[in-house]
Design a protein around this nucleic acid. Structure first.
Length: 862
RNA sequence: GCCCGGAUGGUGGAAUUGGUAGACACACGGGACUUAAAAUCCCGAGGCCCCGGAAGGGGCCGUGCCGGUUCGAGUCCGGCUCCGGGCACCA
């Protein structure tokens, strides 16, 4: 063992040992209890960043800790390898996406290995491999068979310059992210997954997820957005059909004064045909349709509309209501038509005011009278129904039920539940993704690729221009095929799947990564699933985590797994941030490097002003506040990088980068190292811990056990690694203080004992240094095979207790009592304490409250 | 607008069920070692005030703000302020 702490040497050594011994291979063993710990797999963008370091350090602590607790741990890693950046690299730098991706995977894998993460690399998967994506296709076909995958026409964001569909995330302020052209709405045929079929289960099962943060549960609840209400039919004057609307406020149906339709509503134009309103309606539809749904009325919130010239009849009142088109009504939600109750809906109120439509009050608050004329805004709260025919006088909550029942009885409509959640559009006009296994035949129509023909391989010979729609359409060899049904000429679907499909089931693939007759082996999944601890960024709170839950349920219904929920516990780690440096005057950002070398010396190229400290922001290239983990590891080693990120903040909080903090972490490891080294000879000779110890050594021994308890609880129940590490630091401080005293009384044996504990407790956090020190302390069995230490309640027993004495709630004294002192004895000691006595002089005690082992509280008479 | 978080020293953060607020660390100040520096080690430290020559001792205030419950509140309750995040015309 080296005198000095050279992390690089130590880390290389142990990484090789672990690799050679396949120390972290997970082997199915039904006699043992499994533990599945998983971090969200990375996109192979090129290099790992500090967010990865944090994510994987957290996961590795859990994995190593659980192994020491005797669990059969599976801790896999892989690559979310399909995606747009690879295609952009192809367009910009003329590298094939596949080559670019493979290079990145190789590089990042060596980076991850250098962090000493305890992965079972034998289970590695990359979603861009045919062995993986063929199962995306297989699942797609199963979904298609069951009606869970279907094709429909829908409105999408369309860039008229790039001639491609854009995801919502790729629309920046209404314009294309690549060419800045204004994005239009276009109706396209797209493949969808019917996630809405699972809406109710996805919502209800959130209650089972006790190990998830409330924040994420709430976000998913809101995203699914269940609304309970009714569908009502309003007959249209002069026509056979009627207008179907959805409402959650059927209790206000007597207050309807008009109707509103989305411009996309099938009847929008038709209702104005041959009326004076037709030109106005036509113009309005055209104008509003141009604006993407997301942006309508964004700036002003201004309600706009136009009268269609038609009326419908309220079945409850028999009154006629004019039908309007309105810019705020969405075609995607409900039926694209709403009943307007201006008195009790703010949007309808504003609309009615603008167009001079009547306002009819049908809910009265119970504490004050309202009249329609006095309203300055809609009254949306609960109250009593008025002007509501047979329902007048009911509380509106009760009215909701009664009105719904009544309209079913009269056959005017039905009770209904709607969700905000939409079906998942999975078609992408991109190259670097899974080809959708569908063939179009002029005679047979849409034909699924037969299972035996999978995988549909992604062709390599495709030009990357960045223009035009699906790149796959450019590959003749790919497109031209024969129909599996009739053998006639046919063409392949040229869209690929959303990459979120890949990540929706990868955790199942890890359980049997080489299995070749199904996406995964149900027997293996039955043992390893569900994931016991999932760790990743909160940015996936809705999308990925919702899709993965949906897939798990759908695959369960295909008989492949018996779990309802994939992730029992979820930890969403905070982001890694760092201060930025900027020019005060111009919007100029300065780069600032590792080790806090401040951005001093940088001057603004526009005005020459020196850099000043800006806001603390999430690390990003554009903010120029990146710290490259590779440099960090090269300088301090992986253990320091891990220790710093784990110590600086609890995992769920944001972590602010602090170069001095890194130094501090490194210093702690060096201090421990040096202490063990400098005392190697006496430590080697240390004998057994003698039975009778000096009092300070008994204290040290007690602290050892207290630390084991604290670290165990901090890891186990809260993932509060920062306090766990702090406790170990405290123990080291105490050990070093105890070792300073000279005495041949078995001191060194106690010190050695404590050091062994320290090193064991540190192993999950800093595995390389801990393993080396463990060896240095003469321990033979490899540390990664050692059991987690246990504490004895007996050793925790204190001989003396410090009791705080309060008078009227203020601390006035502290007394030390024997651990077995009686309440009366403690009370007597408290009152006799000189300081306390001084405060009691001339006062009378009203009562005394004792908290066992903690405090005595004396209350004086007033 | 709605829904979630959060606010504690110069800084990151501790205080797990209401019981000594500020653990641990960073930064800082002082000292030791050194020709010197770095490194290392030791000591100090929430604020204000008082007693004492000093070592030391003591008091009051203090966890975003206002109020409440309690012998006792960072922690519980009511009402705000500010910050962060998510959703946002969802009928």
């Amino acid at each position: 063992m080296e005198e000095k702490y050279y992390p690089q040497t130590v880390e290389e050594k142990w990484q090789r040992i672990w690799e050679d011994n396949k120390s972290f291979r997970a082997v199915t063993d039904r006699s043992r209890e499994k533990y599945y710990v998983l971090e969200m797999f990375p996109y192979p963008s090129g290099r790992i960043h500090m967010g990865h370091v944090r994510n994987y350090s957290i996961g590795d602590v859990v994995a190593r800790y659980k192994r020491m607790r005797g669990f059969n741990v599976i801790h896999p890693m892989g690559w979310d390898a399909f995606g747009l950046p690879a295609e952009n690299a192809a367009i910009e730098r003329n590298i094939h996406p596949e080559a670019w991706t493979r290079e990145n995977i190789l590089y990042m894998k060596t980076q991850l290995k250098r962090m000493g993460l305890s992965y079972d690399w034998d289970r590695e998967v990359a979603t861009c491999e045919p062995d993986y994506y063929r199962w995306n296709q297989w699942i797609f076909l199963k979904f298609y068979e069951r009606g869970l995958a279907y094709k429909k026409s829908s409105f999408v964001n369309w860039c008229p310059s790039c001639l491609t569909v854009l995801a919502n995330e790729q629309v920046i302020e209404g314009a294309c992210w690549r060419c800045d052209t204004e994005v239009a709405q276009k109706e396209l045929e797209q493949w969808f997954f019917r996630i809405t079929e699972y809406a109710d289960e996805l919502l209800n099962d959130l209650d089972k997820l006790n190990g998830w943060p409330d924040k994420v549960l709430t976000m998913q609840r809101n995203w699914i957005g269940k609304s309970i209400g009714a569908e009502i039919e309003f007959p249209i004057e002069g026509r056979q059909d009627s207008l179907r609307i959805f409402t959650t406020r059927q209790d206000t149906v007597y207050g309807v004064t008009f109707m509103s339709l989305a411009v996309e509503h099938p009847l929008a134009l038709e209702l104005s045909r041959d009326t004076a309103q037709e030109p106005a309606v036509r113009a309005f539809i055209e104008r509003i349709k141009k604006v993407s749904t997301a942006r309508r009325g964004e700036e002003t919130g201004e309600k706009e509309g136009v009268f269609t010239g038609s009326y419908c009849r309220n079945p409850f009142t028999g009154e006629r209501a004019p039908i309007y088109l309105a810019n705020f009504v969405l075609m995607e939600y409900g039926t694209g038509a709403v009943m307007a109750v201006p008195a009790h809906d703010q949007r309808d109120f504003e609309f009615a005011k603008k167009y001079g439509l009547p306002i009819c009050l049908v809910i009265q608050p119970e504490d004050r009278p309202l009249s329609a004329e006095d309203l300055t805004e809609a009254y949306v709260d609960d109250g009593v129904m008025v002007n509501s025919g047979p329902f007048t006088g009911l509380k509106n909550a009760e009215g909701k039920e009664k009105v719904a029942a009544y309209l079913e009885e009269k056959d005017w409509g039905k009770k209904d539940i709607r969700y905000r959640l939409r079906d998942w559009g999975v078609s992408r006009q991109r190259y670097w993704g899974t080809p959708i296994p569908i063939i179009y035949c002029d005679r047979c129509g849409i034909v699924a690729v037969p299972e035996k023909d999978l995988p549909v391989l992604l062709p390599r010979d495709v030009p990357f221009t960045g223009k035009g729609g699906s790149p796959l359409a450019e590959s003749r060899d790919f497109v031209v095929t024969t129909c599996p049904k009739c053998g006639g000429a046919a063409r392949r679907e040229t869209d690929t799947m959303d990459t979120f499909v890949d990540s929706s089931w990868y955790f199942l693939r890890y359980t049997a990564p080489k299995f070749d007759s199904k996406p995964f082996d149900p027997k293996e999944a039955a043992y390893w699933m569900p994931v016991d601890q999932y760790i990743g960024g909160v940015e996936h709170a809705v999308l990925h985590l919702l899709y993965a839950r949906f897939f798990t349920k759908a695959l369960r219904d295909l008989g492949l797994t018996n779990v309802d929920e994939p992730f029992s516990n979820l930890l969403t780690q905070g982001m890694v941030s760092k201060e930025t440096y900027r020019c005060e005057e111009h919007d100029w950002l300065f780069p600032n490097e590792l080790a806090g070398s401040e951005a001093e010396g940088w001057r603004c190229p526009k005005c020459g002003r020196p850099a000043i400290k800006g806001r603390v922001e999430k690390m990003s290239k554009s903010k120029k506040n990146i710290v490259d983990p590779e440099e960090l590891i090269a300088q301090y080693g992986a253990d320091t990088a891990r220790l710093f990120t784990l110590f600086a903040a609890p995992p769920e909080k944001d972590l602010e980068w602090n170069a001095q903090g890194v130094e501090g972490a490194f210093r702690f490891l060096t201090r421990l190292w040096r202490f063990v080294m400098q005392n190697s000879e006496p430590l080697a000779k240390a004998g057994k811990v003698p039975d009778d110890l000096a009092s300070d050594l008994r204290d040290l021994n007690r602290l050892v056990h207290r630390t084991i308890k604290k670290v165990t609880e901090d890891i186990e129940s809260r993932f509060h690694f920062n306090t766990a590490i702090a406790a170990v630091m405290e123990l080291l401080n105490a050990v070093m203080a105890a070792a300073q005293k000279e005495a041949p009384d078995g001191r060194i044996a106690v010190v050695k004992d404590a050091l062994i504990t320290i090193v064991t407790l540190l192993y999950p956090f800093v595995p390389h240094a801990a393993s080396e020190l463990w060896e240095g302390l003469g321990q033979k069995q490899p540390l990664n095979e050692v059991r987690w230490p246990s504490f004895s309640t007996e050793a925790l027993e204190q001989e003396k207790l410090l009791i705080v004495v309060q008078i009227d709630g203020k601390v006035r004294g502290k007394i030390t009592v024997a651990a077995d002192a009686t309440g009366e004895a403690i009370e007597r000691l408290a009152i006799e304490d000189p300081k306390v006595k001084a405060f009691l002089a001339g006062k009378r005690i009203q009562k005394i409250i004792q908290v066992p082992r903690r405090l005595v509280s004396i209350v004086l008479e007033k």
